[in-house]
Amino acid sequence: MALTAPYVLEYTYRRSVGPVVGQFLTGLRDQKFLGMKTSSGRILVPPPENDPETGETLSEMVAVGDAGVVTTWSWVSAPRKNHPLQKPFAWALVKLDGADTAMLHVVDVGEGGMEKMSTGMRVRARWKAERIGHVTDVACFEPESPQAVTR
């Protein structure tokens, strides 16, 4: 007779995100994007703990806008099961207003397809109603409508 034993695969650790990533994620919960200011005055979003050029420890976090410009993008017509959107969508690097670097997220163009996407287009974050301090608190970005610009 074969012997059997239960096997539970688990990750029995709690991970701490630390002061910088933690502040950024807490900001998302409050519908705010935070960037990190470097000694040369650049604002990096998402914020790193150290200056990528000098290695200096950074701590001055500043708010940036929740809309910005697409610097590059790719188009997924058949989403994979783990993708944040289960309809055709774009991956994009988005440089938020006030930031000097771009962050990765997804763009939902609504009706239509790839023809709605272009480098340099403006997009705005669509927030989830229930936010927990996670990068997916931003449901996606959406093309910014002309009305939204003046809002």
Partner: peptide, 30 residues
């Protein structure tokens, strides 16, 4: 393409599951 996601930043990037082809495509577009 999904296994390759495990090499990415675990807080800012990996939770979005950008597969290796999607990321290479961002570079190709640029």
């Amino acid at each position: 393409p999904d296994v390759m996601v495990t090499q990415l930043d675990p807080y800012y990037v990996a939770p979005l599951w950008p597969d290796s082809i999607s990321l290479a495509a961002l570079q190709a577009r640029a």
